[in-house]
Amino acid sequence: MTTISPAPARSGAMAADLLQAQLKAAHGIDADVNQGDGDALVSVWRDLVVWCDPTGSTWWWRTGRRSTQGPRKGRRIYRFASTSDVTTAAQRIACRYADLQRPQSDRPGAASPGDPAAVTCGSPPPQP
């Protein structure tokens, strides 16, 4: 597996470029980087956009699931990763990309809570 050197990012744009390179080198995934006004996004696939904070320290993206309990029931669930670990972040994003490649009925979000099919790429199962 190819790994891009995890040099510390100094901006969201630098972090986005680093992630884009890692996704291509290690997973063969083409992605586009979009920048403006200090924000940077990595567009990987439909419903998979990775945001980079302006300081270049964190990436986050939607998991495709929603919360199932509590006062915030129904809100989108996000996954976060530090830009200091581009390898792990790219692996997690590649797993989400693979989920999106499957038919919608086969995706983890379509499975009932506790169903083993709801667990992919090392993600914990959704809470009932």
Score class of each variant (00 low, 15 high):
residue 1 M to K: 11
residue 3 T to F: 00
residue 3 T to G: 02
residue 5 S to V: 13
residue 6 P to V: 05
residue 6 P to A: 05
residue 7 A to Q: 12
residue 7 A to V: 11
residue 7 A to G: 14
residue 8 P to E: 14
residue 10 R to S: 13
residue 16 A to Q: 08
residue 16 A to T: 13
residue 17 D to C: 06
residue 19 L to W: 04
residue 20 Q to M: 10
residue 24 K to G: 09
residue 27 H to D: 09
residue 28 G to F: 06
residue 28 G to P: 03
residue 29 I to Q: 01
residue 30 D to Q: 08
residue 31 A to G: 07
residue 33 V to T: 12
residue 34 N to A: 11
residue 34 N to M: 10
residue 37 D to V: 12
residue 39 D to W: 13
residue 40 A to T: 03
residue 41 L to E: 09
residue 43 S to Y: 02
residue 45 W to H: 11
residue 46 R to W: 08
residue 47 D to T: 06
residue 48 L to F: 03
residue 49 V to G: 03
residue 51 W to Y: 13
residue 52 C to W: 01
residue 54 P to L: 07
residue 56 G to Y: 03
residue 56 G to F: 02
residue 57 S to M: 12
residue 57 S to Q: 13
residue 58 T to W: 04
residue 58 T to A: 01
residue 58 T to N: 00
residue 59 W to C: 05
residue 61 W to P: 04
residue 62 R to P: 05
residue 62 R to D: 07
residue 64 G to R: 04
residue 66 R to L: 01
residue 66 R to C: 01
residue 68 T to F: 04
residue 71 P to A: 15
residue 75 R to I: 00
residue 77 I to N: 09
residue 78 Y to Q: 10
residue 79 R to S: 15
residue 79 R to E: 15
residue 80 F to R: 11
residue 80 F to L: 15
residue 82 S to H: 10
residue 82 S to P: 08
residue 84 S to H: 14
residue 85 D to W: 03
residue 86 V to C: 06
residue 87 T to A: 15
residue 88 T to I: 05
residue 89 A to K: 09
residue 91 Q to D: 14
residue 93 I to Y: 00
residue 94 A to Q: 06
residue 94 A to I: 05
residue 94 A to K: 04
residue 96 R to K: 14
residue 98 A to Y: 01
residue 98 A to P: 01
residue 103 P to T: 08
residue 104 Q to K: 13
residue 104 Q to V: 15
residue 105 S to L: 09
residue 105 S to N: 11
residue 105 S to F: 10
residue 106 D to G: 09
residue 106 D to H: 12
residue 107 R to T: 03
residue 107 R to C: 07
residue 109 G to N: 10
residue 110 A to V: 02
residue 111 A to G: 04
residue 113 P to N: 10
residue 113 P to E: 10
residue 114 G to K: 09
residue 116 P to G: 08
residue 117 A to N: 13
residue 118 A to Q: 09
residue 119 V to P: 01
residue 121 C to L: 09
residue 123 S to A: 15
residue 125 P to A: 15
residue 125 P to L: 08
residue 125 P to H: 08
residue 127 Q to C: 05
